[in-house]
């Protein structure tokens, strides 16, 4: 399958200047993400996985190297509303009901068929019937699903997710992982997913990007070669454990214990 490149990063570096001297958040990152892939960034905190996602989203700007999203600069891609972004916290607006939270991007972009889009996307995240609830009336997992529906509402081809389930408990996380996979399979979107959980990364991804801190860099890229439709039982299979092992080895190798 030769799919078009959605994200292309060539020697991307990002250095933050701080009072304590420069912080090398990203160093010479090379990565290509093609259409329809599910790519996970995994690594310990400080490895630049969130920074890399934010560079793709034009929420941070690379200080060196070239990066393109849909063949244009990240800024142009953002101005063209090329991606939906899911944050670590739901970041719902508490004065808006569930449906009006999902409607937020539609209002800003002036898209038509708002009612239909809201209904379809809330069904997609299994939240039909909760339209009139306020965020505080929902559990953490439901709130995060609303934020996913909101990110999907304007139908972006690219979904950027920054540890979306990091704050949730294991059981809820498993369930949402499964739902996310189904959603990815059904919609055919390209997903870039940041996580610090090895099982989550292996279970979800077509490719896993293992990253390491100081300086933030990519140390391994692993193809998983699992079928698109997966069940949670898959996590007991030798193939799954082998991939998980390789990820763990990569994380260990990249982690400098001197400091």
């Amino acid at each position: 399958m030769t799919a078009a490149a959605v994200i292309e990063a060539r020697d991307v570096s990002l250095t933050f200047q701080t009072a304590d001297g420069p912080v090398y958040a990203l160093s010479k990152v090379n990565l290509t993400v093609t259409e329809g892939e599910f790519v996970s960034f995994i690594g310990p905190s400080g490895c630049g996985k969130t920074t890399l996602l934010r560079v793709i989203a034009d929420l941070e700007q690379a200080t060196d190297g070239r990066i393109s999203v849909n063949g244009m600069s990240p800024q142009d891609a953002r101005l063209k509303r090329a991606y939906g972004y899911v944050f670590q916290a739901p970041a719902l607006y508490p004065w808006r009901t569930v449906e009006r939270n999902v409607a937020l991007p539609l209002e800003i972009m002036g898209l038509d068929d708002a009612a239909g889009r809201i209904r379809r996307n809330l069904e997609l995240v299994n939240l039909a019937g909760f339209e009139k609830k306020f965020p505080w009336q929902l559990s953490g997992g439901m709130q995060q699903r609303v934020s996913i529906a909101r990110a999907l509402a304007f139908d972006p081809k690219l979904l950027l997710m920054d540890e979306p389930f990091g704050a949730l408990d294991e059981i809820v996380r498993d369930k949402l992982n499964q739902q996310l996979l189904e959603l990815w399979d059904r919609t055919g979107k390209t997903v870039v997913f940041v996580t610090h959980s090895i099982p989550e990364a292996v279970f979800l991804s077509t490719r896993i990007v293992v990253m390491s801190p100081r300086p933030g860099r990519i140390i391994d890229i692993i193809e998983t070669n699992f079928p698109r439709t997966r069940t949670l039982d898959m996590r007991e299979t030798p193939e799954f454990l082998a991939v998980a092992h390789r990820v763990r080895e990569g994380l260990k190798a990249g982690h400098s214990y001197e400091d």
Partner: peptide, 28 residues
Amino acid sequence: DPMQLDLMRTYNASASDVLWKLRFPSSV
């Protein structure tokens, strides 16, 4: 908070959208 503002940035929202849909309701 920064996340709510970043969200508006990902939508390429105008300053007036940020004001009326985020900043003003937050300030009530």
